[in-house]
């Protein structure tokens, strides 16, 4: 858990770029892209968080030495 807040900040930064660019690619219409971005971003962050949680749990249980 070293520098957890910094890592979280960087993750949110990277996720904004990833979701932002993919949203713009999927929606050439700027108005629609603006509308769908928040939902897509939230979905990405929550899904990534769930994956991270599973990995941490596995790290402390099945994969622990």
């Amino acid at each position: 858990m070293k520098d957890i807040w910094l890592h979280l900040f960087l993750f949110l930064l990277a996720s904004t770029a990833i979701v932002g660019v993919t949203t713009m690619l999927a929606e050439p219409n700027d108005a629609i892209a603006r509308l769908v971005f928040p939902r897509r971003w939230l979905k990405f962050v929550l899904t990534s968080g769930a994956v991270a949680l599973v990995m941490i749990l596995l790290g402390y249980t099945l994969a622990s030495i």
Binding site: L25, A26, E27, P28, N29, I32
Partner: peptide, 8 residues
Amino acid sequence: DPKHGLTA
């Protein structure tokens, strides 16, 4: 129409 993108 270029605004018809991948999912539109």
